[in-house]
Design a protein around this nucleic acid. Sequence first.
DNA 1: ACAAATATTTAGGATAACCTAAATTTTGAT
DNA 2: ATCAAAATTTAGGTTATCCTAAATATTTGT
Lengths: 222, 222
Amino acid sequence: MPFSATEENYIKAIYALTHSLGVEHANTNQLSSRLNNKAASVSDMLQRLFEKKLIDYKKYHGVKLTKKGFSVAIQIVRKHRLWEVFLVEKLNFKWDEVHEIAEQLEHIQSEELVKRLDKFLHFPKHDPHGDPIPDIKGIVHELKQVELNTCKVKNKMIFSGVKLHTKEFLQHISNLGLKLREKIEIIHITDFDGLIEVKINSNKKTIHIGSKTASHILVELL
Amino acid sequence: MPFSATEENYIKAIYALTHSLGVEHANTNQLSSRLNNKAASVSDMLQRLFEKKLIDYKKYHGVKLTKKGFSVAIQIVRKHRLWEVFLVEKLNFKWDEVHEIAEQLEHIQSEELVKRLDKFLHFPKHDPHGDPIPDIKGIVHELKQVELNTCKVKNKMIFSGVKLHTKEFLQHISNLGLKLREKIEIIHITDFDGLIEVKINSNKKTIHIGSKTASHILVELL
DNA sequence: ACAAATATTTAGGATAACCTAAATTTTGAT
DNA sequence: ATCAAAATTTAGGTTATCCTAAATATTTGT
Ligand SMILES: [Mn+2]
Ligand SMILES: [Mn+2]
Ligand SMILES: [Mn+2]
Ligand SMILES: [Mn+2]
C-alpha cells in the first residue's frame, strides 16, 4: 500500500485541520482551501480515500482519519519535520526556507531512509519551528506551551514554537533576534497596547514584541 | 518549466541509452524495455517530449536529446549521484542499497538544495559506484578507465568503477573485499580461464577475480 | 417552520500517462 | 527487388486527479 503524493497530501491536510483546530472532523471546504483544489475535486477524492479505508466519511458531514489514515498522517509529518531539521542543521537553510522543499521530501518512500535520517540527526525532538517530531512508533510528545501574550511580567520561559509558519512571520521573528529554544524573560508589558519587552538571556539588549506577534509565539514556562 | 518525474525519467533513459552505448539515437523499443512501458506508450510520450523541445524526433527513426533535453538529463544525473553519495557517506547505506532511493530523490526540485548538498558533501567527484558527478555547470569529468580484464600482470591501478549496477554484482564485489578507489595490483593471470589474482594494497591477502567479473570492473592505470 | 444562503455532491469533461490491438513503416534475408 | 519479420505508430480505452456547472443537502435568520 504505497499511497500517491496526492493521497498523502489529503491525509496530511485532514490531520492538520483536525489537529490544529482540535476538532473531530474536517470538512470539504476547509480541505478545498487548504489544498487549493475545488470542493468538487475534494468530494471526489474523499470517496476514494474512504474506499481505501483511510478516512471515515459520511456525505455532507465531514471526514475523520481512521486508525490507518492517522498512522499514515503521522509518518508523513515525521518525515516532513525530520527533513526540515536536516535542511536547517546540515545544509544551513534558514527556518523560513525549508517548508516547500520538505513538502517534496516528505513523500520519499523508504522506511530505512527515515530511520537513518533520524539517527543521523541524533533523534531530534522538534523541527526548526518547534513542532514535535513523532517518534518511530508514531508517538507525538507535545510540549506544554502557552502563547507569549498570555504571560506575565517577570515570567521566565523558553521560546519553543510558532503558531504561524509564513515566510514573512518567520523572518520577522528572526529579525527580532529570537532563536528557538532560547531562554527569555518578560521585562515589561505596556498596558495600553500589550507591547511586550523581552530580555533574551544570551543578549544584553531587550527587544519589543507587538501583541499580535506575541500571540503567534509559543513558550514553555520555567 | 518544471518537468514531471515521468518526463524526467524518459529524458534520463534517453541520456543513459545514448551515452552508455555511445550512439546518437535511442529507439522506441530500447526505451520501452528500460522504462518497463509498452512501446506504444513510449511513442506517445516521445511526441509530447518533442513538443516540449526536449528531444529531436523523426517518426520511426529514434530520438536524440536537444540541448535543453541534454541539460535536463545532466541535472538529474547530478542529483541522483549526489544523493547516492549522501546516502552512503552520511547515512551509512551500502553501495548496493542506494539506487532505488536516489531514483526518488533525483526528482526533488530545488536548485539551492542541490548546491548545498554538493557543498555539504565536499563537492564529490564521483558517486559510490565510481560514476562521475556532473559539476554545477553540467560538465562531466570522465575518468580514463579500462576494464580490469584488459590489464596485464604487474599493472598497478586504482579500482574506480563498475559497469554493472545490479545488487547482486555490487554485493559480489563487496564480498571480494574490493572497495572503490583502492589501489590494487595484478599478481597473476591464469591463461586458461582468465582468472585474475589481485593484491589489494591495504591488505596482506590476495583475492581472485573471475574474468566475467573482471570485465565489469573499471580501473585507472597508474 | 421555511426560504435564502451556504456547503457539498453529482454530472460531464479535460489531461497525463498508461494499455491492447490494429495499422503502418522499416529492415533484412533471399 | 520483394516480402515476411521486426519495429513503431495510431486508434481506442482506462485510471487518477482535476475542473465547471448543475443538482441537492444542510444551515441559518426570521
Ligand atoms: Mn513545514
Ligand atoms: Mn516545520
Ligand atoms: Mn543509481
Ligand atoms: Mn550510482
